[in-house]
Design a binder for these strands. Structure first.
Lengths: 322, 322
DNA sequence: GCCTGCCATCTCGTTTCGAGATAGACATGA
DNA sequence: TCATGTCTATCTCGAAACGAGATGGCAGGC
């Protein structure tokens, strides 16, 4: 066994929690084989660890025979001591985690207007019901400014968008596909439209620095296509109103127009050849990672998202967890 | 963190002794960097482990700043608990090892006649003084029968010989070189003699199944040499007496004739081209490995051997320990 | 502006761990 | 006597964990 740092003397034996757990488990089961089944560990691993304890202490702890094991006098001493230690550890874990069972305080979250349209209500409700001592401050905005403010540490958490496969340390909440948002009663009437045909529709889209705009523009450029951008507006609700009033089309993700689409106020037509996707991700301010309140909200958000998607309140896909 | 067996739930956090030791060390040092120096562990390792504790408990334990660290309220709780746990472990180790601090009982050891000549007296004395509650039963014999008896489990321990580099689970106590044992006043008078010249001397050597005999015979055969074996005697003292009386020469290791050589009753001449060496090893009966008494004697023997060699009471070399 | 001190992160080689297979020992029943 | 079953010990190998060393970022002092 390698020197463990705190006691650098070579070959010094230091008992380990795992070994104690295995030892107690074996004694209580009465055999390595039964303990293996109970503890869901290979019998050979138990055999090895108990043997390491015996070698470390320089004394035999178990008597082995064909019917199993029984403890020696030394083994009884260790059993008693091990139970005390394991109990202490259990109490420690309970005490330390208990202090985060009811986290409290203020948590700030930045959220893009699009995602906010499906997520802000349910999230606020969930936090209120499940984390009653947490005050969630939600700041909605366009993604450009949100990225900057998050980078500046203005929020504890932020919902952001990413098109790259790699999202680093962030959690992927959902994947969305961009679609053509169509005024009611207007063509096209098919379920999908090729990217190359989008030029036929006059578009109201966000400003050039907008994440949505850049995502789509990149793909369009890559495919040698063009778009008929008539209006550049950094106001999602304005864009949606224009579509509802038949003044323009737009290219958005389902979260942005989930409600209007479900009420028939706009229609969505899938864009294909290629499908344009992006991820909705959750970023955490590294400084706040270990805050119990932030941690709790951070764990709650994916659940809210999953519930929305599975309840067909958001047309997106939940990413696979590996 | 992998499922630890006793709690197979994935990702379940289980505090580890090492982490607690590191945490306490860091808090007491007031900084990771100072703790690293104190604990002889890389600062990055401490940082990582404490962070794992924080992530596992879901709460921040330390406040870090440019002057070092201080504990949070949660950290204080953990510090208190950790000290209790580490103390319990220390007491456990003390209690368990204390029961082997004064091992008692009978220990049997087989020892070849050659090695017994230098080792049996000092070993019995050492056991008597350092392990007063142990009764050491020493059985001397030729190595052939000793090997068989040890294999049959007749002894707890056995001192044996090996010529191969690999000695498996056994402990190497010493290395010896075979030499020509010469009657006083007889040639050769040089300090060393080539193997090829040994045929000039009439030899009294042990019987064919003897370890000594086989070790030398193998090397002689490998070098295309011959020996003039006049007497085959399975009694070491008889062989030595014959040499002392000028009736024969012999080929033995220094342990066999250490006393007679030191009294001028025989001379030793180093055999070269090649030097013939063998190891003196200590074997333990696997069934007895964990007996405290056997373990204590097992640890004592190398010390006795080392003292003999370093005190020039045995012309052999102590093996390097890697 | 530079230096110092401190912590966090990354890479890489080493060590440890556990699963699975297998062998040996022993008792029981046919 | 042989086959079977039960139990423990040992070995191999792939995966995971660990720690050293290097490096970067940040803040304060000179």
């Amino acid at each position: 066994m390698k020197a463990l740092g705190i006691m650098p003397q070579l070959d010094l034996f230091v008992v380990d929690i795992r070994q104690l757990r295995y030892f107690v488990g074996v004694v209580e089961a009465g055999s390595f084989t039964k303990a293996a089944a109970t503890l869901n560990v290979a019998q050979s691993a138990l055999s090895l660890h108990v043997r390491q304890l015996e070698e470390g202490f320089g004394t035999q702890l178990l008597v082995r025979d064909r019917t199993g094991v029984s403890v020696t006098a030394s083994g009884d001493k260790l059993l008693e001591r091990a139970r005390i230690i394991l109990k202490e550890i259990q109490l420690t874990e309970a005490e330390l985690t208990n202090s985060v069972a009811a986290p409290s305080g203020e948590v700030t979250i930045g959220i893009p207007s699009g995602a906010a349209r499906v997520l802000s209500g349910p999230l606020l409700e969930s936090v209120r019901s499940e984390l009653p001592r947490i005050s969630l401050k939600m700041i909605e905005g366009m993604t450009g400014p949100l990225e900057e403010w998050m980078a500046a540490g203005r929020f504890n958490l932020a919902v952001l968008y990413r098109t790259a496969e790699s999202v680093g340390q962030m959690t992927v909440l959902a994947r969305e596909e961009f679609c053509l948002v169509v005024p009611p009663g207007e063509p096209p009437f098919e379920d999908s439209i090729p990217l190359a045909d989008l030029h036929a529709f006059p578009l109201a889209v966000p400003m050039r620095n907008n994440n949505v705009r850049r995502s789509v523009a990149d793909v369009v450029a890559q495919h040698g296509c063009v778009l008929d951008v008539r209006f550049e507006v950094d106001s999602l609700s304005t864009i949606i109103n224009m579509v509802m009033e038949g003044k323009a089309y737009s290219i958005l993700t389902p979260s942005a127009i989930q409600k209007e689409a479900s009420h028939g106020q706009v229609r969505t037509v899938k864009i294909i050849d290629p499908v344009i996707t992006r991820s909705v991700v959750l970023a955490v301010n590294p400084k706040d990672e270990r805050s119990p309140a932030v941690s709790a909200v951070r764990k709650l958000i994916p659940k809210v998202v999953k519930t929305l998607i599975e309840g067909k309140h958001w047309s997106a896909t939940v990413p696979d967890r590996v």
